[in-house]
Every structure is written in structure tokens, then in C-alpha cells.
Simulated scan of single mutants.
Amino acid sequence: MGRRNFLIEGGSGTGKTSVCEELARRGYHVVHGDRELAYQGDPETGAPMEDVTGLAVHDDHLWRVDKVKALVADQRQAVTFFCGGSRKFAKFIDLFNGVFVLEVDTETLVRRLDDRREDEWGGQRRQAELDLILRLHRTKADIPRGGIAIDATGPLAHVVDEILTLSGAVGQSAR
């Protein structure tokens, strides 16, 4: 939805949602990918899958690629930030002008997960989810390669300021 589009990625607990909300608060156009584009689907085919367990499955957390492409093609906004994680990012990552990867240390990650509600992914120390999140944090297995690393351990305002500066989007909000 922007003439310039950026993806903000990172593992669980790195601050993608907080960054997205702060960008929106500052008047920037954002797409909450995990809220607006995500669904549970077959990682190979993309076909939607019914969630019979009531629990999201990490590998099946996908974004609707056709919708991502349509949003990127709509250039009414000067800049748009897409925030969240998708296991099929390889299908659309080349559409973005840049990719920012939020990074935190393990201690910060565990503290943030401890603060999550029970109904959030990794919340309230569900051990299987916590183990997966920590393994993915260590291996960076589901993070886009070649993105611009952003230290997301500092104050939210500083993290967002760095993204805005590096993207060249300072002053290009809708306000």
C-alpha cells in the first residue's frame, strides 16, 4: 500500500507487534501481518487448514501471498510497514524495498515471553512453545537472511527511530 514497502520481521518476542503499534501511533501506514494476513495453512501448498486443536502451529502460520502482493501494488501511501512473521516469506520478500529483522538477547526474550498472556503464542511458559521459540531464536531458522538487523532490546522509541532513519521514511507519515 505504499510506494515504498518494508517488512519488519523477527522471532517471537522480538517486538514486531510493539514496533507496528508505535509506527501506527506516529501516523505511519502499517499492516499487522499476523492480524490481517495470517492464517493456518499447509506450508507446502498454502491451502488453508482447519485448526482442530485450538492452538496455532508455528510451521503452519502463513500470510496470504496474494493479499501481500495486492497491498504492495497499491501505492496510495508514501511508505507502508508490514509487521509480523510468516513461514512463506520467500514467496513475497522480493516485493519489499527493505527488510528489518528485530533481534534481542535470550534474557530479554525470556522476560518478554514471561509477560505474555496465556492465549498468546509462547505465553505463560507453555513449555513446548517456549522450547521451540528458544531453538528458533538460537538458530534463526525462520528469519529472512540479508535483512537489516535492528537491536530491539532498547527503548521502543529508539528502535522505531532507527527503522525510520534506515528506511528513509522519517517525515513520510500520513499525518
Results as ranks from 00 to 15, higher is better:
Asp42Met: 04
Ser173Thr: 09
Pro48Arg: 12
Ile148Tyr: 07
Phe81Asp: 12
Glu50Gly: 02
Val160Met: 04
Ala174Asp: 13
Asp42Gly: 04
Gly84Glu: 01
Arg87Met: 15
His29Asp: 06
Arg175Ile: 09
Ser167Gly: 11
Phe96Trp: 05
Arg25Ser: 13
Glu103Lys: 14
Arg76Leu: 14
Glu129Asn: 05
His58Tyr: 15
Ala78Pro: 12
Asp51Lys: 05
Gln75Ala: 11
Gly171Leu: 08
Val170Ile: 14
Gly122Glu: 04
Gly123Asn: 04
Ala141Val: 06
Val65Ala: 03
His29Leu: 11
Pro48Lys: 11
Cys20Pro: 01
Leu132Lys: 13
His29Ile: 03
Gly147Met: 08
Met1Ala: 13
Ala56Asp: 04
Phe96His: 02
Lys16Arg: 13
Asp115Glu: 15
Cys83Thr: 00
Val19Glu: 01
Lys69Val: 13
Met49Thr: 05
Arg175Ala: 08
Thr53Gln: 02
Gly146Ala: 10
Pro155His: 12
Gly84Arg: 00
Gly10Leu: 07
Leu136Val: 03
Val101Ile: 14
Asp151Tyr: 06
Gly11Asn: 14
Gly33Ile: 00
Asp131Val: 09
Asp151Phe: 08
Val65Thr: 15
Leu130Met: 11
Val170Leu: 14
Met49Ile: 08
Arg4Trp: 06
Asp151Pro: 08
Asp59His: 15
Arg125Leu: 10
Glu103Asn: 11
Gly146Ser: 09
Lys69Arg: 15
Thr14Asn: 08
Asp60His: 15
Gln77Met: 14
Lys16Phe: 00
Asp34Leu: 04
Leu37Ala: 07
Val170Pro: 01
Ala47Arg: 09
Leu132Phe: 06
Met1Ser: 12
Leu109Ala: 07
Pro144Leu: 13
Arg4Leu: 12
Asp119Leu: 04
Gly10Ile: 00
Glu22His: 09
Arg76Ala: 13
Ala78Tyr: 05
Met49Tyr: 02
Ile148Thr: 14
His137Pro: 05
Ala47Pro: 01
Arg87Val: 15
Asp142Leu: 07
Gly2Ser: 10
Met1Leu: 08
Arg76Val: 14
Glu22Phe: 05
Ser18Cys: 09
Glu9Phe: 14
Trp63Ser: 00
Glu50Cys: 02
Asp151Glu: 13
Met1Lys: 09
Gly27Trp: 12
Gly33Asp: 01
Asp131Gly: 07
Thr45Ser: 14
Val104Thr: 10
Glu21Cys: 03
Gln77Cys: 12
Ile150Ala: 08
His32Lys: 12
Ala90Val: 13
Gln124His: 12
Ala38Asn: 05
Ser167Trp: 11
Arg111Cys: 06
Val104Glu: 04
Cys83Gly: 01
Pro144Gly: 10
Arg3Trp: 03
Lys67Ser: 10
Asn97Phe: 02
